[in-house]
Amino acid sequence: MSGPRLRVTADLDLCQGHQLCQGEAPTVFGFDAAADVVTVLEEHPDPALRPQVTAAVRYCPAFALTLEETTDD
Rank of each mutant, 00 (worst) to 15 (best):
M1D: 14
S2V: 12
P4A: 15
P4T: 10
R7N: 06
R7G: 07
T9R: 08
T9M: 11
D11W: 01
L12I: 10
D13V: 06
D13N: 14
D13Q: 01
L14H: 04
Q16S: 12
Q16Y: 11
Q16C: 15
Q16N: 10
G17E: 07
H18M: 02
Q19A: 12
Q19E: 10
L20C: 10
G23R: 08
G23V: 08
E24T: 11
E24N: 13
A25R: 02
P26H: 05
P26G: 01
T27P: 07
T27S: 12
T27G: 10
T27E: 09
V28H: 02
V28W: 06
G30V: 04
G30Y: 09
F31W: 06
A33L: 09
A34F: 09
A35I: 09
D36G: 09
V37A: 06
V37D: 07
V40E: 06
E43V: 03
H44D: 11
H44Y: 13
P47K: 05
R50A: 08
R50Y: 00
P51E: 06
P51V: 01
P51D: 05
Q52P: 06
Q52A: 15
T54H: 09
T54D: 15
A56Y: 03
A56S: 04
V57Q: 04
V57N: 02
R58N: 11
R58I: 10
P61C: 04
P61D: 03
P61K: 02
A62T: 05
A64Q: 00
L65K: 03
L65A: 06
T66D: 11
E68H: 03
E68Y: 07
E69I: 03
E69Y: 04
T71F: 15
D72N: 08
D72A: 12
D72R: 11
D72W: 11
D73S: 15
